[in-house]
Design a protein around this nucleic acid. Structure first.
Length: 580
RNA sequence: GCGCCCGUAGCUCAACGGAUAGAGCGUCAGACUACGGAUCUGCAGGUUGGGGGUUCGAAUCCCUCCGGGCGCACCA
């Protein structure tokens, strides 16, 4: 783990220097890192390092094993080559150039193959709770993003049907990623790209027309490639309700009106569903608008000028293969109609032109084949393709009653997000989707998500939060109120208390790491961890009635735990109930 | 056939290239006469799919094989 993780990955946003935080742990780490750097410089002759030898980039991290200390560095291991000495020898030399007392470090030791372990003075923990108390819901926020503009585009489902489980995973993932990036100081835009033109949309219009005619008693089947979902029957009925002059209208006008009506209704339904899932977008971007204002034509022209297009079989092709894609791609069909990909290139160019410095797309695994050509097209336009980051999300497999639920959009046999929300509820759904890494195949157990038992991990976290709230309710009911403000945190000496405080101190770094790795599942695990430490503490020790010294200190600990749990759950889109 | 992702405890999954691979669930054995038992404590459970390689160090990177998922349209 590394507070400077923003610099580890070769992303466009990574170049600017971090703005340093005052968080305790981060500060202590930075101090140790500086001291180590200084020690290498001072020890150059002893280590046999040339003046121009670059110090390798080393880590100062929290070791997994806690008797390895609070921090450990691999610096000595990395210097073996340039220094031509054994790592333990190097570590020994480095330690002689460190002044631990200046670092709040109690003990420095060499361990294992040559790690240098730092044991902090135990009192450092005393600073943690006051810091959380002061920060409140802002504890963990940072300015690491430097206010740079980031766009997260996710779901972007075809407005031709209802949202399904795959879309739901994308929604949960995208929204949490956006929340994380915002939390660490990026200027985040959540965006939904609306596919409101093209073949699928024409099919939608034709299907609507068929449903209308059916409603009027005519025998008119939905086209083979059309949309057979029953929701369209209702949509058609509502249309007829409103526009009774259906049969008299000019067929072309009629189709346009049908389409407009269906699109509006479908989009509105998606917006409503997503909002009840806790997801709200800043921008709904219309594909059609790109065509309307000539952005697609303009983009094609630019590619042509740069010599990346050619004609074949009457179609216009992009030399995608020259930019790392599997094969070349058609941008304009022989019939003169641009492909979806052509519009998509224009869309991503537009993202560039709007000034985003980092663009994140959440795509399902069934679209992974598009990544190379999308990036290739950006390179062809003269942009840095690394500004685009595509998070590929593996597909969701549903289980009910221990068996796989087969889903097929064609036959309309699939579980919708609306049904999921009704069935298992928002909290469990959001948590389940975001508790696994994006590239892990997700087995979604409907029965487990629905169950209100200890098998369901969502409630474990929420229960910790509700329990803390309950303690404060109890306290309010009782007469005596020791003042939390006068809590003496040094009274917290039990192992369970210290472990919890220690974990709470990790939150700012945990959030930063999760944000830059686009990995909200880290927060899910972290929250579970904190909840577990709290439950252990709670079970072993009294809070109320613990005595004049301990009670206020433990109340403060409980309050800070609640603060962190709330923030973590909020990042995941899970509610933090006062009682359950 | 080619490309991308995955394979870790009985199940679902974690683990910035670091030290003795960790959680939850399940199994088994236990725990408060006061703050919510949707809790806690403990036991058992592993050749990280197989085999090579790189590295001081590999679940992690490279090669190869096996198994699973998903792509490879003038669809989106």
């Amino acid at each position: 783990m590394d507070w400077t993780s923003a610099e580890r990955k070769p992303r466009p946003v990574s170049r600017s220097r971090r703005s340093m935080m005052s968080y305790l742990l981060a500060g202590l780490r930075a101090g140790i890192e500086r001291a180590l750097r200084g020690a290498v410089e001072a020890a150059r002759p002893e280590l046999g390092l040339n003046p121009d030898t670059v110090i390798p980039s080393f880590t100062v991290e929290v070791p997994r094993e806690k008797n390895f200390g609070d921090f450990a560095t691999n610096l000595a291991l990395l210097l073996t080559k340039p220094a031509r000495r054994s790592p333990r020898q190097i570590a020994d030399i480095l330690i002689n150039h460190l002044k631990p007392e200046e670092l709040q470090v109690q003990e420095v030791s060499i361990a294992g193959p040559g790690f240098i372990n730092f044991h902090l003075h135990p009192d450092w923990l005393h600073g943690v709770l006051p810091e959380i108390e002061e920060g409140g819901e802002d504890y963990g926020r940072s300015k690491l993003g430097g206010g740079r503009k980031v766009q997260v585009e996710f779901v972007s489902a075809n407005p031709t049907g209802l949202l399904h489980m795959g879309n739901a995973r994308g929604a949960a993932l995208g929204d949490s990623i956006a929340a994380l990036l915002s939390f660490v100081g990026f200027d985040v835009t959540r965006e939904f790209y609306v596919n409101d033109t093209g073949h699928q949309i024409e099919n939608l219009a034709l299907s609507m027309e068929a449903r209308c005619l059916q409603a009027l008693g005519l025998d008119c089947p939905v086209p083979e490639n059309g949309y057979h979902g029953e929701d369209l029957i209702d949509t058609a009925a509502r249309f007829l309700d409103r526009y009774s002059l259906f049969m008299d209208a000019d067929p072309r006008e009629r189709r346009r009106a049908l389409l407009r009506f269906a699109l509006d209704e479908k989009l509105e339904a998606m917006r409503t569903t997503l909002e009840s899932f806790g997801v709200r977008y800043d921008v709904w971007f219309s594909e059609q608008s790109l065509h309307d204002r000539g952005a697609v034509r303009e983009t094609l022209e630019r590619l042509r000028q740069r010599g990346h297009l050619y004609e074949k079989d009457g179609a216009l092709w992009f030399r995608a293969a020259a930019f790392g894609a599997a094969k070349d791609e058609v941008l304009v069909r022989a019939n003169g109609v641009p492909t979806y990909f052509a519009a998509d290139i224009a869309y991503h160019k537009d993202k560039f032109d709007r000034g985003f410095e980092w663009v994140i797309n959440i795509w399902g695994a069934d679209h992974h084949g598009h990544v190379a050509r999308m990036k290739g097209s950006l390179a062809a336009l003269g942009y840095d393709p690394d500004f685009l980051e595509v998070v590929i999300m593996q597909l969701v497999r549903l289980y009910r009653d221990g068996e796989i639920v087969r889903m097929s959009k064609r036959t309309g046999q699939y579980v919708t997000l609306d049904e999921l929300l009704e069935d298992v509820g928002r909290d469990a759904a959001r948590y389940f989707f975001v508790t696994r890494g994006a590239d892990s195949h997700l087995d979604f157990d409907l029965d487990l998500a629905k169950s209100r038992t200890n098998e369901n991990p969502v409630y474990y976290i929420q229960y910790a939060h509700a329990r803390i709230s309950s303690v404060f309710r109890q306290r309010a009911e009782r007469g005596s109120k020791p003042r939390i403000e006068e809590a003496d945190v040094s009274a917290l000496s039990e192992e369970a208390e210290r472990a919890l405080v220690r974990r709470l101190a990790d939150f700012p770094e945990e959030v930063a790491l999760a944000a830059f790795d686009l990995a909200p599942h880290r927060i899910a695990h972290y929250a579970h961890d904190v909840a577990g430490l709290f439950h252990s503490f709670y079970n072993a020790h009294r809070i109320l009635g613990a005595g004049d010294e301990l009670e206020p200190a433990r109340l403060l600990l409980a309050k800070c735990t609640r603060t962190v749990l709330r923030s973590a759950m909020s990042l995941l889109g899970v509610s933090a109930p006062e009682r359950m």
